[in-house]
């Protein structure tokens, strides 16, 4: 994203980015929720065990690999999304960023979350809500930067990015394991 000076402009751009991220996440949640219906004939116990096995496998994979080697689109979101102005660009950038599959996915946490929505057999509204919450949370770090960041923020963050990615996977797996136990 192009450099933008002035907190007021940054916050307006961030608001568009947040809306885009939320919409993108909700889109992914909707798709996963619809596909989860196809798995509804599978007994709940089987789906719960499958989730547990896959979630633990993904977590171990994330903890062992220096860089996560799961299938993903290994391209950045093109800067051309801002060609029609910052507001529309921020929105479109957010949609692509928040959906969770249009750019790099360096943590298994999002895969575990997607598996949960796919296998838990949730009502569609909950699948959409969880997707929207995922998307919105992707915009939080940018708000932190705007409000509290200083020069070198990204360099500092990149020094412990892998810790963040792996910790997120562990936390998400434990919490979703709890949610599965409560559901089934």
């Amino acid at each position: 994203m192009a450099s933008v000076r002035g907190r007021a402009i940054q916050l307006r751009l961030w608001a568009a980015f947040l809306v885009g991220c939320t919409v993108g996440g909700a889109f992914t949640g909707t798709v996963l929720g619809v596909f989860s219906g196809l798995l509804s004939p599978v007994p709940a116990g089987v789906r719960a065990v499958l989730f547990g096995l896959l979630a633990v496998s993904l977590t171990v994979l994330d903890l062992r690999q220096p860089l996560l080697g799961l299938p993903q689109r290994k391209e950045l979101i093109p800067q051309e999304v801002f060609a029609r102005g910052l507001g529309r660009g921020g929105l479109r950038f957010g949609v692509e960023y928040g959906c969770g599959f249009r750019t790099l996915v360096p943590s298994a946490a999002s895969y575990v979350a997607a598996l949960f929505v796919l296998l838990a057999g949730l009502p569609l509204a909950w699948a959409v809500t969880l997707g929207a919450a995922f998307g919105a949370s992707r915009a939080v770090a940018v708000l932190q930067y705007i409000l509290l960041g200083r020069p070198g923020w990204q360099h500092f963050l990149s020094s412990h990015t892998r810790w963040l990615e792996r910790s997120g996977t562990v936390v998400a797996t434990v919490l979703l394991g709890w949610a599965v136990l409560a559901l089934f």
């Binding site: 999002s110 979350a113 949960f116 949370s137 990149s158 990015t161 990615e165 919490l175 979703l176 949610a179």
Partner: peptide, 23 residues
């Protein structure tokens, strides 16, 4: 009693934060 959406929502937020390094 903590209903399932509470840990599930916390988990998806954690998943979103985990990807912040690619911001």
């Amino acid at each position: 009693a903590i209903p399932w959406p509470v840990p599930a929502l916390l988990a998806v937020v954690a998943a979103g934060l985990a990807l912040s390094g690619s911001t």
